[in-house]
Simulated scan of single mutants.
Amino acid sequence: MTIFETAVRPVLFRVGGGDAEKAHEFTLERLARLRPGALAVLRRRYAVDRPVEVFGVRFPNPVGLAAGMDKNGVALRSWPALGFGFVEVGTVTAKAQPGNDRPRLFRLRDSEAVINRMGFNNAGAAALAARLAALGPLGVPLGISLGKSKVTPLEEAVQDYLTSYELLHPYADYIAVNVSSPNTPGLRTLQDKSALAALLGALVGKTPVLVKIAPDLTEPAIAELLEVCLAHGAAGVIATNTTLARDGLATPDQPRATETGGLSGRPLTERARKIVHFVHQETAGRLPVIGVGGILDPDDATRMFDAGAALLQLYTGFIYRGPALVKAAAKAKR
């Protein structure tokens, strides 16, 4: 057990009377206030120098922060100090939106899992662009995850994504196209062949574009999606997003299974790994894969690398294990 698990996590889990979203906001606020001296101390403790180049981008180490943790980029200076070799902000939409009603974030502690139905709550692409312009270089690669505004009809989705892309791609080392969140009505239909082809046709350009896929797709559906990615110049795939399935929950967490939203964490470990392996095999390595889902210890990281992942991302694992996991995963055998 690390200091984070024994001392820090219990405190964070009590913030706001146990409200997971209030704890999330509390953490972001504190990270955003860290001074250069504190960041330097953290960097000496957690930074790992293990460079790798993927889709033409050089990463100081292969472990990144997944989208959803810092949607609006408020704590961007802190993530590299906590050991992350890259950071993905968002998911951001062309139009600012409040997201779904609260409560919308739930911890399932015995399962080391989270259910969220956030609904792309964010300040909008223009606000993020302004923040990134003021911030300047981050020091590690920055990915920006784009989603569809909830109020935008599906038939206007391409223009909605393109609006965000035009505002944000100058600041991004890569763009992630999120067509797989279960929390925006109809969004996952954009994974269909014709819809994805139109979207990639509009977005693929100088900045590498990756497609984030759902873990609930069948292998034939993933194979079709990969054909579109290859045909339209996608730089890679992020596998996977959260799942609508509720398999693998510990008994004390079963009452939470009725909460709608996407499940992440330990119950997703094997499914995410299998999809990463399938993508790697199906494309013969032509599409680099960022593996994300259920990585909670170094062995999970090693197995994800063995499955074919070129890079990893953490979200729920970071919530439960803290920055020591970032360091351990970055050192994992690959």
Rank of each mutant, 00 (worst) to 15 (best):
T2I: 09
P10H: 12
G18F: 14
E21T: 13
E21N: 14
E25M: 12
E29F: 04
A32R: 00
A32T: 00
G37M: 00
G37R: 05
G37F: 01
L39F: 04
A40P: 04
A40G: 11
A40K: 05
R45L: 05
A47I: 01
E53S: 12
G56K: 08
P60Y: 14
N61S: 02
P62I: 02
G68V: 02
N72A: 14
V74Q: 01
W79Q: 00
G85M: 01
E88R: 06
G90H: 02
V92Q: 00
A94M: 08
K95E: 11
K95F: 08
A96T: 01
D101Q: 08
D101T: 14
D101C: 04
R109F: 07
S111A: 08
S111W: 06
E112G: 05
M118Q: 07
M118R: 06
G119S: 05
F120E: 07
N121D: 08
N122T: 00
A123N: 09
A123M: 13
L132H: 00
A133K: 07
A134S: 12
V140I: 02
L142Q: 04
S145F: 04
G147D: 05
S149M: 15
S149V: 15
K150D: 00
V151K: 09
E156H: 07
A157E: 14
L168T: 02
Y171L: 05
A172G: 08
Y174C: 01
V177D: 13
R188L: 13
T189E: 12
L190N: 04
L190P: 10
Q191R: 10
A195Q: 14
A197T: 10
L199C: 10
G201M: 03
A202P: 09
V204Y: 06
P208R: 11
L210A: 03
A214L: 02
E227S: 13
G233Q: 08
A234W: 04
G236M: 11
G236P: 12
I238F: 05
T240K: 01
N241F: 10
T242C: 12
T243F: 10
R246M: 07
D247N: 15
A250H: 04
P252E: 15
D253E: 10
P255Y: 15
T260F: 13
G261F: 04
G262Q: 02
S264M: 14
S264A: 10
R266H: 11
R266G: 04
L268I: 11
R271L: 03
K274E: 15
K274D: 15
E282K: 15
E282I: 07
T283F: 14
R286I: 04
V289D: 10
G293Q: 10
D297C: 12
M304W: 15
D306A: 13
L311S: 03
L311C: 05
G317Y: 00
R321E: 09
P323T: 07
P323W: 02
V326P: 01
A328D: 11
A332P: 01
K333F: 03
R334P: 14
